[in-house]
Amino acid sequence: MGRRGWIGAGLVAAALLVLPPLTGFHPYYLYLVSTALLFGTVATSWNLLAYAGQISFGHAAFFGLGGYGAALASLGGLSPWVAIALGGAVGAVGAAGISLASARLRGAYLALATLAYAEIWRGIAHNWTAVSGGGAGLIGIPPLPTLAWLPVDFTRGRAGSYYLSLAFLVVVIAVFGGILRSRVGLAFAAVREEEERASLLGVRALPWKVLAFALSGLFSGLAGGLYVHMVRVVEPDLVFNRYFSILPLVMATFGGLHTLLGPAMAALGLYLVSELLLHPYVPAFHQLPYALALIAVVLYLPGGLAGLLPGKRSGAA
């Protein structure tokens, strides 16, 4: 990323930092931007998985597992912080599970398997009424506790969850950046680009794929856990919604695959355009930007998907 990119990112970060007082702690706008930040986190974690060459069409599964895991733990009396951490662990385990099960699938077929996986969890949440509350979901999730040691401006109203989402996004981006520079990133890229060659050089693909899934599932699950504590309900069609699968894919490919900040920037941009500009005026069409962005990426961004598509062997296993 060039110097311009960093300056842009710095400006966006500064703007995000001073947004709550600027909007007068407006609850709706803060909720909206918090959600955008969480989408940015899920998009970044999707991108982390794509960096290892694994394309997911089912991040809703990890987000939803995190959401339900955290909600159940929180309703069971655990502190919300512990509950969210547990949600992240549930997301990581769920992601590692599908990765292990579909070890022999690649490319489009892995993508289809993850799509089915997310639908299966949505079905389970709908039907396993005793645990999940069925279609009605679970209500009465406690709010996030106020961190009394922080200055009041950081905790007022919805500002608390807003700054938490922002901090979480920054942490996930930092972790991704660290991975890019480490041997983990080296292995991810090798597995993505040429799995057989990587194996010949001593990199066994499967553990790295599972690690990439688990990390991605962890961050998405944490985001899910945070989200249900923000909205304080959890329903199958809320957290296992297909949009949590589509949107990260759109944001990451539109923002720039394998880039550090692109997916988060695209998440903020697309989500806010959709919710602030389109939703009030043409509610039925407010998801149009995502559809168009996706189509544009495939057709008009040469190389936009190039990183997704390692060589010509990526079809069937």
Binding site: A108, L249, L305, L308, L309, G315
Partner: peptide, 11 residues
Amino acid sequence: PEPRELSSLVL
């Protein structure tokens, strides 16, 4: 673009 299976899924 190739490979079609994956790009068609995205599109």
